[in-house]
Design a protein around this nucleic acid. Structure first.
Lengths: 215, 215
DNA sequence: ACCTGAACACCGTTCAAGT
DNA sequence: ACCTGAACACCGTTCAAGT
């Protein structure tokens, strides 16, 4: 049953394995990715995958690397270049929430190196002083990492009951820990929390940092 | 062998279970925490733990909650109150790196609610406009989440070879992905990366946001 | 009410054996 | 060189049986 013709001539390779893994991650979720299911989808044995991939960490890193790309920016405004760069990664995470989990777990992935490098180029173009560039770049990276973790967590808790409003209501409830009166700020923010746009909010955070850099 | 006297009269309770879990997490690391080891340490059966704790997620959440505390601030300067608050959490994560992993994975923990509330109070005291408070609070929370993920990852990759310098050299190598010439910014930052203080850098990131808020 | 510990249903990973 | 699939060494969780 599991022979090469089932694979329709596509030879097993790291690329094809990573493609299949991404398909599972996107459609079935993070927990669904097992070597057994992956092997079944590829019509091969579980052990065969280990010929092309070192272990699950390697597989996940390759999947992230395939999904995060950092296009060369042609924005005239260097601020805008950084914004576009970070929004691009943000959008990739929105499309593939499991990337957020992975980046938060393993920030030293090659993909993050590309982002860090591009941020650095943008900061140079902005004219940020050399001595501040490292702090600035890591502040921007932290903002991205935080948003990534946030998005991945949201995606994990959404499938349970698809309704966004009730999920957010539960966030307020969990955060308030059964004593709403003790959390006036959170109560006050329940409205904005319900209505806000994650992407716009992420951008607002980036803008705060970019503004701070101008002082 | 596993009877109550081995437990020295300490009745099994959620508190004692969480204490034992924290001890394991702190000394043996995140991967070492299993229900089997925990049961052995508590001189009981694995199943007994489930009488007091819903599942592993519940256990981890309780452990985080026990370790993250948000003291009421008495700083005169509201900026300073926010700084101290965030640094307090940062220090807790430094002392217990597994908290970073957990917060990044589950940002809707009660502990994060307390942090968010305290940030909100500080922003109010700073006189930040109502309409910006939500964006500002989540930017600060993202910065904390990003630093938490960063620290947890650092702690995970350090034990392998205790030397900090070689670990950081490897970060530069991994980020540069075998082609240093393509990553001039990262090469230029190799020095600062080696010499930097995580805590100071985190604070610099927070200050960028706080500065941005004043414009 | 609380505890015991074997059993269940999984994992990632390895490895002798095949082609 | 590459693949197969059973086997190994684990997990979290459940549950009949005890006290």
């Amino acid at each position: 049953m599991a022979n090469k013709s089932d694979r329709r001539g596509r030879a097993l390779s790291k690329v094809s394995i990573v493609e299949a893994a991404i398909a599972i991650l996107d459609t079935e979720g993070e927990d669904a990715l097992t070597f057994r299911l992956l092997a079944a989808r590829l019509a091969t044995g579980a052990g065969a995958i280990y010929w092309h991939v070192a272990d699950k960490g390697d597989l996940l890193a390759a999947a992230v690397d395939a999904v995060i790309m950092v296009p060369a920016s042609d924005a005239a405004d260097p601020d805008e270049a950084i914004r576009l760069l970070l929004l691009g990664v943000f959008d990739a995470i929105e499309a593939h929430p499991w990337v957020g989990t992975q980046l938060a777990r393993e920030p030293w992935q090659p993909a993050m190196g590309r982002v860090f490098e591009a941020i650095g180029a943008g900061l140079g173009a902005m004219g940020v002083a050399e001595t501040r560039q490292f702090d600035a770049a890591s502040a921007l990276l932290n903002a991205l990492l935080g948003a990534a973790a946030h998005q991945a967590a949201a995606a994990r808790s959404l499938p349970a009951d698809a309704d966004r409003a009730t999920v957010l209501a539960r966030v307020v409830a969990r955060w308030s820990g059964g004593d709403p009166a003790a959390y006036p700020f959170i109560q006050r923010m329940a409205g904005p929390l319900r209505d806000h746009d994650d992407r716009a909010q992420f951008l607002a955070g980036i803008d705060l940092i970019l503004t701070g850099l101008k002082i």
